[in-house]
């Protein structure tokens, strides 16, 4: 059950998107997110939809996985949409009591939902097709210029990569602890709120203990293998652009050009 959580999850498959250099995907995702805010028109959404749909099609990841991320922000989506619907001034569509729904509001709300949906889905494509270690590699390399500003880029990337690899491990551990306590008759489903919160203690304490133990073990293991930060450290598989990455950049440029044109014309 707890494995249903797919935050930042990687889906192993064999596709062009999986093989792309992570820097392309990071940069692409950034541009894509920005592009969603460059147009106001319906035509713009057609371009974005075509782009997104083709990405999903070539990613070889089941569509069901793409939209799982949306479940988590479903409430947020509805909330923003409703607020926008009621609070945008404009021509009146219907009105009852003190609430007025305007045509502009409705249009704005619909676009808002679409925009957020596209945003989440687009970023899920990146995390679903890139392993955590690849992702942090890409981040580290594209952010290296920040070293000049004394930002510890390598350390940040290392922390991210450890955090990402620990998410599934800790989820699994949580699952196991829940089962172990259930085997001792623990009940997490019934009772009032206070009762349920107290029922979490038998899960949280062992979970924290285990997280600290793991962190400690990991630190020792890293130290015993002479880890001492990023200085002078080389990569086993250094990132290098291939032909497909250049093509991907071109496709990306084409998409952005289309969006900008649409944004200006319509």
């Amino acid at each position: 059950m707890i494995r249903e959580i797919t935050l930042g999850q990687y889906y192993p498959a064999d596709s062009v998107l999986h093989r792309l250099d992570p820097r392309v995907k990071l940069f692409g995702t950034l541009l894509y997110v920005i592009s969603l805010f460059l147009f106001q028109s319906f035509t713009g959404y057609i371009v974005a939809t075509v782009f997104l749909a083709s990405l999903i099609a070539i990613s070889h990841v089941p569509v069901k996985f793409m939209f799982r991320g949306l479940k988590a922000i479903f409430i947020l989506l509805i909330f923003t949409a409703v607020l926008n619907m009621f609070l945008t001034p404009g021509r009146e569509l219907v009105s009852f009591w003190k609430i007025t729904i305007t045509i502009e509001g409705l249009r704005f709300a619909a676009f808002m939902i679409l925009r957020l949906t596209y945003l989440i889905t687009g970023s899920s494509i990146m995390t679903l097709t890139t392993t955590p270690s690849n992702l942090t590699d890409g981040l580290e390399k594209s952010m290296r210029w920040m070293n000049i500003l004394k930002v510890p880029v390598h350390e940040i990337a290392m922390m991210m990569s450890i955090a990402l690899t620990f998410i599934p491990v800790l989820l699994e551990e949580t699952d196991r602890i829940i089962k172990a306590q259930q085997a001792r008759g623990a009940d997490f489903e019934s009772g009032n709120l206070i009762h349920r919160i107290r029922a979490l203690v038998p899960i949280l304490v062992p979970l924290f203990v285990s997280a600290f133990r793991r962190a400690n073990d990991l630190a020792l293991a890293m130290e015993s293998r002479c880890y001492r930060g990023g200085e002078g450290r080389t990569k086993m598989r250094p990132l290098r652009y291939e032909r497909r990455d250049i093509i991907a950049y071109l496709v990306l440029a084409l998409y952005i050009a289309c969006i900008i044109t649409v944004g200006i014309l319509f």
């Binding site: 001792r184 009940d187 038998p202 062992p206």
Partner: peptide, 25 residues
């Protein structure tokens, strides 16, 4: 059922209270 590495499920302040958890449930 005693799980693999069951010591990872201990959580109470003292041994006795921890053992009481099962029968109390």
């Amino acid at each position: 059922l005693v799980f693999q590495y069951p010591e990872h499920q201990l959580f109470e302040e003292d041994v006795f209270t921890d053992v009481c958890f099962g029968p109390k449930n």
